[in-house]
Amino acid sequence: MDLKELYRDVILDHNRHPRNFGRIESADRSAQGHNPLCGDELSLFLRMNGTRVEDIRFEARGCAISTASASLMTEAVKGKERAAIRELFEEMHRLLTRHDEVPAASLGKLAALSGVREFPARVKCASLCWHTLNAALDHDAATVSTE
């Protein structure tokens, strides 16, 4: 297996310098994610404008994959409508679980995470932030777990 497929430069960069890192005071929505297997912990903060995600920030303590995935996700969903985010979620799910899938063009930089699917033990690291985002969008406050 090729580690460079997993730890692509984009991922290493977002791990070293996570974007949208921090909290939003008086966030409209927030959620906590937890991966008990790894101990990855993630908090998401959202400011909404109707059904649009106006701003999103995160705090995380986890591995390179979970940190980079959350960082890339915040960039991808900021300014997007909920319906568009749902579609991205589905595309990410396919990207992380289907071996023969060609990454959808709509994923943009998120496609850098495609290497994760060759490392089954790490898929949950990449998907944690997306499940947490779903929880934040569905409820005002929630905790999700990968287990």
Partner: peptide, 28 residues
């Protein structure tokens, strides 16, 4: 470097180590 990333890099070199909380979360 998070222990899970370490574990993945070591595995790529054929080295098996345990990474995680070792079922001893109070110790962590």
């Amino acid at each position: 470097v998070h222990p899970h990333d370490l574990g993945t890099v070591l595995d790529a070199e054929g080295i098996a180590v345990r990474t995680g909380h070792h079922c001893a979360m109070p110790v962590m």
